[in-house]
Design a binder for these strands. Structure first.
Lengths: 226, 226
DNA sequence: TTCATCCTTCGATAATAATCGAAATGTCAT
DNA sequence: ATGACATTTCGATTATTATCGAAGGATGAA
């Protein structure tokens, strides 16, 4: 009837509260089981199953069978991007729900949000980079300053490589627990990777928690203080 | 009940076929009246009015009153971005509708799609840049090559300025009429601006048509042929 | 003023889909 | 095998909402 790609179908898949909650949970990058997703969405396993079938048929999520569980992940980086953009709009428009984030104190402190650092330390990173004038965030988004560019290079991040991706370099991402911004986008992800490589932090198995070593946390503090 | 920005609400607004059609029509960048949008969506004016009220309340579109008409535009570049990403997903997933594009031959030839060049000439531009190896498009998106970067600079485009925007530099956009890709993103928009500045082309008042001068079209052909 | 046009509001209808209880299937552990 | 758990299927209910006809307001033209 109408022209071009069918936006409505895809958007409708993201447009149901239960499904949106599941997808947001999958932004952590972890593969989650059907029941875990049901809990995240606050619906019974039956309903979740129905939703997941739709998301799977629409190629929004990808299932992976393992034993008696089915693990789901987002089907690609474009889905992450779409969710990030929608979060940005929802945020600009002022439509956010009220709930405090995860209760686990370690989760509140430092965790991964898909592939970048979130939690208190994520917020601290964002604020620190801003105070040091390495990034600037305004209405249009987040930008690396020239000081920020040289900082990134010195810190061992291949900016040109990042730029060649479709994904935007910097993006603001609202923190679930802290209710403040942390840094998303390919640069945010690269920073976290670098923290891993430098041995400052490591990811706790089977969880979203990022655990900093004593030494790593110290160096991190130096990084984000002026 | 749940955490963070309310993705579902925004996505649901984009997730209705009638609304999606209206928004896609608005991607041309032109301000359209309520009745025009009703026609685009294939619904009666009453239904369109109801949809537009919702989109307006959700700050997806911005109304502007003029005489007895109400003109609507997309409320910001983030909306364009969201629509572009969703089109990309829908395209990847293989969900597209069947309809040929606009019937006006001049529209098929060269028109604006929000702020970049579309139609046959838009496709020719995309193909030409690809053949000249100034851009490369793969699964991850579209990237400027180093040859493309120097070309852009010589052509008078401030790439650093563009990079400082939230919007991605290059993006593929499926052409409604030609069913092939043309170049979107801030670089695509900058190219069209440059065509205007150089006097190669100008926009026809009150329409989406881009009219190239005889000389401009010739130079354009030189640009896109190897 | 009077008329035509653009748009909205109201009310009713119909279609869609989210939800869950109950039961079935499949997988692992013992 | 038997039991426990994860997931799906089925069926029925309920809530939501897209849709349009009819009528009302608002604006500009004559």
């Amino acid at each position: 009837m109408k022209e071009g790609p069918d936006i409505a179908h895809v958007a409708a898949l993201l447009g149901d509260p239960a499904r949106a909650n599941m997808l947001t949970a999958l932004m952590s990058g972890r593969a989650l089981t059907a029941t875990e997703l049901a809990q995240e969405a606050g619906v019974t396993p039956q309903t979740a199953s129905s939703h997941l079938a739709k998301l799977e048929a629409g190629l929004i999520v990808t299932p992976r069978k393992q034993g008696r569980h089915r693990y789901f992940t987002l089907s690609g980086p474009d889905i992450v991007e779409a969710l990030e953009v929608l979060m940005g709009i929802a945020n600009r428009v002022g439509h956010n729900r009220v709930r405090t984030g995860p209760k686990d104190p370690e989760l509140r402190h430092a965790r991964v949000c898909y592939d970048h650092l979130a939690g208190d330390m994520g917020v601290a990173l964002f604020d620190g980079l801003t105070k040091r004038k390495l990034i600037i965030s305004d209405l249009n988004g987040v930008v690396l300053t020239s000081a920020g560019i040289s900082f990134a290079t010195e810190f061992g991040i291949d900016l040109d490589g990042l730029r060649s991706k479709r994904r935007p370099l910097c993006r603001e991402c609202l923190d679930w627990s802290a209710r403040q911004s942390h840094l998303a986008g390919s640069f945010g992800a690269a920073l976290l990777d670098r923290f891993y490589d430098l041995g400052w932090a490591s990811r706790v198995r089977e969880s979203r928690i990022v655990r900093f070593s004593r030494d790593g946390e110290k160096k991190f503090r130096d990084l984000v203080t002026f």
